Computed example of a mutant assay.
Amino acid sequence: MSDALDHPQLTSHRYRLTTADGVGIDSVLLRGAPGRTAAVVLANGFTGSHRSPHIRAIAESFGSIADVMTFDFRGHHGSGGHSTVGNAEIHDLEAVVSHLRGLGYTSIAAVGFSMGAAVVVRHAAVYGGVAAAVSISAPSRWYYRGTRRMRLIHLGVGRTAGRFFLRSFRKVRVTDHSWQDRPAEPREIAGEVSPTPLLVVHGEADTYFPTSHATAIYEAAAEPRELWLVPGMGHAERAVSPELALRLRSWLRERLPLD
């Protein structure tokens, strides 16, 4: 594989988007060769950002086959509003996908990590219209406290002191309101993603969610679907190795009509 393919010349374009419920979303589009009609959206995990070097590395890898848009979920870093930890964030992803359609992209894939993966599954099921959906390190159900790391997350979002820490040190503003209406869990709604291809990826060394979450989503989904359980892989975007990024890129290339 040539260096030109692995390291395309990408130009960065910043956009301030507005969701259907009026929240400002900070986003960046990385563009390659002119005239492309395929794009990939990367949806971060909780506390993640488009500024992350991990997201940037994945975006640059995918940039050889499509333009890539990254963004900050509501309440995160440069975006407005408050994080609802996976509920209203579905509007954020739809704002990004709609913006790409407005720019002329006709084939759009969504790739999400952890919280962003749950949003990608829900978005593909509720809104549809994407060419492919990739869920990496997703929870299959809400309120999971089965690992130490998830118990700490719940302390962080559920207590005033925890939200203060997140706001002060992670630049994440979390709402102090609980969900009024619980959205469908990824495992409950995965069957509605079809006929969009769904790829479920999970690390066997994930310390947030065990692999049973991935198998629950996969088993609930209809064809076309795939499940990759990756030995030694940890959690979310930080755990995506260059080798896994290449494998994901190949999977996306087969499902996106490329120019």
Rank of each mutant, 00 (worst) to 15 (best):
L246H: 13
T215F: 02
A20S: 15
G203D: 03
T47I: 15
F209Q: 07
P139N: 01
T196I: 15
A190S: 12
H54D: 12
M1N: 10
S241N: 11
A88M: 10
H7I: 02
R145M: 12
T37L: 08
D92V: 07
V111E: 04
V126F: 06
D67A: 00
A239G: 05
L42S: 06
D92G: 07
R122S: 10
R31Q: 15
R159A: 11
W251I: 04
H154N: 14
A214R: 02
G102W: 03
A221W: 02
H82I: 00
G35K: 08
A222F: 03
G112C: 10
P53L: 10
R225A: 09
Y144K: 09
W251E: 01
P210H: 04
H13S: 10
T84W: 02
S2I: 06
Y15T: 10
G162P: 12
S12V: 14
S241F: 08
S107W: 03
H91L: 11
V68H: 01
H202F: 10
Q180P: 07
A33E: 14
R14S: 13
F113N: 04
I55Y: 10
H77C: 11
L5G: 05
S64L: 02
V68N: 01
V85A: 13
F71C: 11
P257H: 08
S12K: 13
L256Y: 02
S137I: 03
V111I: 11
D67K: 04
S83H: 06
Y127V: 11
H202D: 12
L199G: 06
A4S: 14
G162N: 12
R187I: 05
S168M: 13
E60C: 02
L246F: 00
G22C: 08
A33V: 14
P186V: 03
R16M: 11
I65N: 01
Y15G: 02
R141T: 13
R159I: 14
P8N: 11
N87W: 13
A110P: 00
G48T: 08
T19N: 12
W142V: 04
T70L: 14
E94R: 14
L252I: 07
L100C: 04
A190L: 11
P8G: 11
L248H: 00
W228A: 11
F73S: 14
V193D: 05
Y143T: 00
P186I: 06
A118P: 09
G156M: 15
G35W: 02
V201D: 04
N87G: 05
T160E: 14
V230G: 03
S107F: 07
V68S: 01
S27Y: 05
M115C: 10
G203E: 07
T215Y: 04
R151A: 09
E226T: 07
S135N: 05
V85M: 12
I25W: 02
V120T: 15
Y15M: 09
A125D: 08
R151L: 05
E223H: 12
D206A: 08
H235G: 06
H7L: 13
P242K: 08
S135M: 02
Q180C: 00
T19L: 12
S83V: 00
A239R: 03
V230T: 05
F71I: 08
